[in-house]
C-alpha cells in the first residue's frame, strides 16, 4: 500500500456524484417497497390464505416506491423535463439504465397489483383478486431488483468507497431492504391490532439484520485493504452498525423473551430497523461523496494492487 501519496495541492482528483439526499431517500424507499412486494407475494402464494392482511399491507406499501420513487428520481435530474430519455435506449453497462427498466416494470405491475387489491377491498365484483395474484409475480421479481440494483448503481462508479466492495454492498442493501419490509409490515400488523404474524415478520427482520451486519463487517475488511478506511469512516460505520443493526437486534431479542409484554420492544425494534435502513443509505451516499472529494483516498484507491487480478 502506497502511503504518503503526493497530491496536487490537495485538489480533488475525482468529482463526487451530483446526487442530493433525494437519491438516498429513493434508494431506501425502493428497497422498502420492492422487498414488501416480494414478501407479500410469497405470503400470498405460500401462506395458504392465512396471511391476507399481510398481503394487502405489503401490496399497498409497495405503492410507496411506485408512486414516490419516480417522482424523487425525476426531482434529482438536472434537466427533469427530459426524464423520458431514460427509456430512450437500454444499456447493460449502466445500472442507471438497468434500474430505469426495473423501476418501470415494478411500477406498472405494483400499480396493477395494488389497484386490483384496492378495488377488491371495496367488494366490487370482478376478477380483481386474480389480476392481483397474476400481476404480483412480475412485481415481486422486479421488487427483488429494486432492493439491490441501487447498490450496483453506486458500485459501478469510480467513487472509492462505493467501488471498493461491490458485492458486499449489494448484500447489505438487499438484506437491509428485507429487514425494512419485515419491520414495516410487522408494525402495520401490530398497530392495526392484529396479533397473528408479527413474530414471523420479526424473525425475517432478525435474519436480514444479521446478514446485513455480517456483510457490513466483510465490506469494511475490503475498505481497509483497499485504503478507503480512516478514523472518520470507522466512526460513521460503527454508529450505523450500532443504530441499524445491534440496537434493533437487541430490542427484538428482548421483545421475544418478554413474550406478550415485549410488544412495545418489538415495535421499537421495527422502528429502529426502519430508521437504521435510511441512515445506512444516507451514510453510504455522503461518505462515498466525501471519499471522491478526498484526493488521498482516491489516489490511494487507484493503485495497481487494487486492480482486479485478471486485468492488472
Amino acid at each position: 500500500m502506497a502511503d504518503n501519496i503526493q497530491t496536487y495541492y490537495d485538489h480533488p482528483q475525482l468529482k463526487p456524484a451530483p446526487f442530493s439526499w433525494i437519491v438516498a431517500l429513493y434508494v431506501y424507499l425502493a428497497g422498502l417497497s420492492g422487498s414488501s412486494q416480494m414478501v407479500a407475494t410469497i405470503a400470498d402464494l405460500f401462506g395458504g390464505g392465512r396471511l391476507r392482511s399481510l398481503v394487502r399491507r405489503g401490496r399497498y406499501l409497495s405503492l410507496v416506491g411506485t408512486v414516490i420513487g419516480p417522482v424523487l428520481l425525476i426531482m434529482d435530474l438536472h434537466t427533469p423535463q427530459r426524464f423520458y430519455n431514460m427509456l430512450r435506449i437500454f444499456k447493460a453497462t449502466s445500472p442507471m439504465s438497468i434500474g430505469s427498466y426495473i423501476l418501470s416494470v415494478f411500477s406498472v405491475f405494483s400499480a396493477l397489483t395494488g389497484g386490483a387489491q384496492f378495488i377488491f377491498d371495496r367488494a366490487i365484483r370482478g376478477p380483481w383478486r386474480w389480476i392481483a395474484r397474476i400481476a404480483q409475480v412480475p412485481a415481486a421479481g422486479a421488487g427483488g431488483g429494486m432492493s439491490v440494483y441501487t447498490a450496483s448503481l453506486l458500485a459501478s462508479t469510480s467513487t472509492p468507497l462505493w467501488a471498493a466492495s461491490p458485492g458486499w454492498m449489494a448484500v447489505r442493501f438487499g438484506s437491509s431492504s428485507v429487514a425494512s419490509a419485515g419491520a414495516a409490515l410487522a408494525l402495520g400488523e401490530r398497530w392495526s391490532g392484529g396479533r397473528g404474524y408479527g413474530r414471523k415478520l420479526d424473525a425475517l427482520a432478525v435474519a436480514a439484520l444479521s446478514v446485513e451486519l455480517y456483510a457490513a463487517h466483510l465490506s469494511q475488511r475490503d475498505y481497509q485493504t483497499k485504503g478507503v478506511w480512516g478514523d472518520r469512516e470507522a466512526a460513521v460505520w460503527d454508529s450505523i452498525d450500532a443504530l441499524g443493526g445491534y440496537l434493533p437486534l437487541a430490542l427484538y431479542t428482548a421483545g421475544f423473551f418478554l413474550g406478550r409484554r415485549g410488544r412495545t420492544l418489538s415495535e421499537a425494534a421495527s422502528l429502529a430497523t426502519l430508521v437504521g435502513g435510511l441512515a445506512m443509505r444516507l451514510a453510504m451516499q455522503y461518505a462515498g461523496q466525501a471519499s471522491a472529494s478526498d484526493p488521498r483516498t482516491s489516489l490511494r484507491f487507484a493503485q495497481p494492487e487494487n486492480l482486479p487480478r485478471a486485468q492488472s
Binding site: S94, V148, S156, P166, A170, L307, P308, Q311
Partner: peptide, 19 residues
C-alpha cells in the same frame, strides 16, 4: 490516478450478488 478502473466491470458482480 496510477491505476484507474472501468466502472462497468462492477455491474455484474454487484448485481448478481444482490440478486
Amino acid at each position: 490516478p496510477r491505476a484507474p478502473t472501468r466502472a462497468s466491470n462492477r455491474v455484474m458482480p454487484s448485481l448478481l450478488s444482490g440478486l
